[in-house]
Amino acid sequence: MRTTTLGGSTVEVSELALGCAGIGNLFHPVTDEAAHATVDAAWDAGIRTFDTAPHYGLGLSERRLGAALRNRPRDTYTLSTKVGRLLEPRPEGGRGDDLAQGFAVPATHRRVWDFSADGVLRSLEASLDRLGLDRVDIALLHDPDDHAEQALTEAYPALERLRAEGVVKAIGIGVNQCALPARFLRETDIDVVLLAGRYTLLDQEGLAEVLPEAAARGRSVIVGGVFNSGLLTNPKPGAMYDYAPTPPHVLDRALRMKAVADRHGVPLRAAALRFPLGHPAVASVLSGARSPEEVRDTVDQMRRTVPAALWDELRAEELLPPHVPVPAAAPQSWG
C-alpha cells in the first residue's frame, strides 16, 4: 500500500488508515476477540496507520489497539492518539453506561477537558499506559473547538516541545470543522490536520481554507468521516448525516450520486473513499471498522477503479463543483 510522509515530519502514513473508535464500542458492543481480529485484518491488508483516542470507549479503544499491536515490530507501523480529554475515575464506581457520549461501555470514568501543558503530558502518559507501548508517533489536539485559546497557547507549545525532544514525531489537530485547523495551519508549525467530514463527496468545505493552507505550507491532511455518518454507504430515508437525521435535500443529492455511481458500475462507497485522495495535501483516508469483514470490504472498495467518466458525470449533473480535484482512475501500489 502506498505511503506518504506527513508534512515536514519523518512519519509515514498508509494511504488507508484504520480508525479505532469502533473497537472502542462506538454505539454497539464489540468483543475483545472481534477487536483484535479487526486490527489483524487491517494489518493483513497492508494498513500500517492506526488512529485512536482516550475518548473512544473511555480508553477501551487504546487498550484493545495496544494489545493487538503489541507483538508487531514497533517501527513497522504508525500510531496516533489524541489529547484534550483526561479520563478521571468516577467516585461512585461507574453506574450506568456511556451511551450518551456514543460508546457502549460502563461509565467508569468521566471526561475532563484539559488543554493545559500539564494536561497534555498527563494525557499522553495515560495513553501510553493503556496502550502498553513505549511511544506514539502522532499526537493530535482532539476537538478543541470551545478551548481554542488554551489549545493554541498551552497545549500546542507542549506538543511542540515533545516533538523537539523526540517523544512524538508529528503533531497536529483533529476536528470536524474548518475554521480552527486553518488558524492552526497559519499560526503554528503543526504537521497534520485530521479533518473529519469536511472533505467528502457531499461536503467540500475543507477546500476553502484548510486544504490550500496545508498545501501551501507543505503540511498534510488526513481525511476522516468520508461517508458522512454512513449516508454515503447506503443513502436511504432514515439514514444519518453528520450524526443527525439527514435533511431531505442532502438525501436527494446522495441518492442522485448513487445513481451516477451505479451507472458506472461502482459502489458509491468506493467513490467516497477514493475522492479525498484527489487533493495533493491529502496523505491518507481514515476509515473506521469494528469487524474483519468491514475492514476487508473497505479495502476492496479502496482498490476499485473509479473511472474518470464517473467524476465527469457528477460534474455534469452539478453534483460536484467543477474546480474540485478528483483522484486518478486506479489506485497505485496496492498489493
Rank of each mutant, 00 (worst) to 15 (best):
R135Y: 12
T153H: 12
G102L: 11
Y199C: 01
D97A: 15
V175C: 05
E205C: 06
S220C: 10
L99S: 14
R130P: 09
V175W: 04
E213V: 07
S123L: 07
R122F: 11
G218Q: 04
V168D: 00
A214Q: 02
D97T: 15
G132P: 12
G93L: 11
L162F: 05
A158R: 00
R198C: 05
E213M: 09
L159N: 05
W113Q: 14
E154W: 10
A107D: 14
A139N: 04
L99I: 15
W113I: 15
G102Q: 09
L133R: 10
G96S: 11
G172C: 02
L141M: 13
D145V: 13
R219K: 12
I173N: 00
S220H: 03
L159R: 00
E209G: 03
L159A: 02
D143C: 09
E154S: 10
L128R: 06
V193G: 05
G94T: 05
P212C: 05
A158M: 06
C178N: 08
T108Q: 14
R135T: 10
D98M: 14
G119V: 06
R122N: 15
Q204A: 12
R122I: 11
G119T: 06
H142K: 04
V192K: 01
E125K: 14
G172Y: 00
A126I: 07
Q150D: 08
A215D: 14
A179C: 07
A196G: 13
A179P: 06
V221D: 00
V221C: 07
L159G: 02
Q177V: 11
E154H: 14
I190L: 14
D98S: 15
L124E: 07
R186S: 11
V193D: 03
V192G: 02
Q101D: 15
P212W: 08
D191F: 06
T188M: 06
R130W: 08
